[in-house]
Design a protein around this nucleic acid. Structure first.
Lengths: 224, 224
DNA sequence: AATATACCATACCGGATGGTATTAAAAGAG
DNA sequence: CTCTTTTAATACCATCCGGTATGGTATATT
């Protein structure tokens, strides 16, 4: 089912008398360190080789320690994978969150957000993450949903705030900022991400040009 | 490796004296039918369960016949997969190819192309195909490249032709039609495809709205 | 110090996988 | 009809996988 995310990871001892909460698992510093190290290694290996491309034994071989420990922390391979993705989801866009639109020129603000966003999304690590999430979106639908909210949707929210700011200042025509943000986000991100997924990420110059075009299109269109 | 795509599929008999082309494989009607049937079944199963989710035995169990035959036709699992994807690449956009822009209103032409394109790309079969290609783009880079050319690039070319037509009529400002087509294509396709990959494809009304917005943005922008 | 728990190392299990070998039946070519 | 090649059926191989069992060690709480 893959939905038992936080419920009962410690499956080794089924708790003698089920009824008295059965001794909460002991949390120690070493234990958390071990857990984090497993997550860390598993993340790198899943990113590099995909879900089916990595076995638990592969991970244990690198982490050290024993297989039992992986199972007691995460319940199994699916639990480990879910934990890995959950932790990575938020990491990429953290730097974007604080961006405020203060420049009176809408083009400048949109360009700044666009540059920051594209720079992060085209990092090799994020490209691998994107591939992983899409690849397993069928097997782990909840995970895919969570990624979408923590990734594209959050980026779009930042853009939407910028758009709303300029609308209130009368520099953009009134319209749903969230929907406008979606169009802008997609113009900026999609092609570069495709290229990167294919192994040929766009050069810096091409990235800039694409952002400039998207800004110009969003603001002025191409009608004669 | 995985580059010996068309070279030597018939690997069973290594040909006694390597020098006289060693009896070209006999091509019969039944043989081709068998081959096509394998491709057909393999395509459906790969789409449904992914590359690692389907074993050769699974495929043989459905197709009938024997494993040996799969290996003599395709050389192995990777060869079979490559053949499957290669054949599917072109199928989706065939209906789009002939679209000609004759309407004097640019918005009408772009909307028509957009509707046709989105309708195809959001079909469950294409969504599964997209997921499959992205998932295996790391393991099969050449396949991913071929998909990109036969898919997004071809769709963009159709859009670009429409744009160029209206530019020459003076209804759109001069600019690189291919690059404009990329922005428009990405605005139209990306979000809907994401939603579909997550299992919640957009309703018809939402699809229409997104296309209309993209057309309006491309033509007029949102500046006050 | 004693006890409970987390961790380590390793062996093991049932099952599945890609791929090969062998032998027999079917079908095309002359 | 005969000979050659393709297809079928099946058994087989080596390997790997997720997961469990076991038995012993480190660590933290009491």
């Amino acid at each position: 089912m893959s939905t038992a995310r936080r419920s009962a990871p410690r499956t080794t001892t089924p708790s003698p008398e089920a009824g008295v909460a059965a001794t909460a698992p002991r949390v120690t510093k070493r234990g958390l360190e071990r857990r984090d190290r497993i997550l860390e290694v598993a993340a790198e290996m899943f990113l590099a080789h995909g879900y089916d491309g990595v076995s638990i034994d592969d991970i244990v071989k690198v982490v050290g320690g024993s297989k039992t420990n992986v199972y007691s922390h995460f319940g199994g391979k699916e639990g480990l994978f879910a934990a890995v993705v959950e932790e990575m989801c938020g990491d990429f866009l953290d730097g974007l969150q604080g961006m405020e639109a203060t420049d009176p020129d809408p083009a400048a603000g949109l360009r700044a957000i666009g540059r920051a966003l594209v720079a992060v999304l085209l990092e090799a690590r994020h490209v691998a993450f994107q591939r992983l999430v899409i690849a397993e979106s069928g097997r782990f639908p909840a995970m895919a949903r969570a990624w979408f909210e923590a990734g594209p949707q959050r980026a779009r929210a930042v853009i939407a705030r910028c758009i709303a700011f300029h609308q209130q200042a009368g520099r953009l025509r009134p319209a749903d900022p969230a929907r406008m943000a979606t169009r802008f986000h997609d113009m900026i991100v999609t092609n570069g991400l495709y290229q990167a997924l294919l192994g040929t990420p766009p050069a810096a110059q091409e990235r800039e040009a694409a952002i400039d075009e998207a800004v110009a299109t969003l603001l002025h269109g191409h009608a004669a």
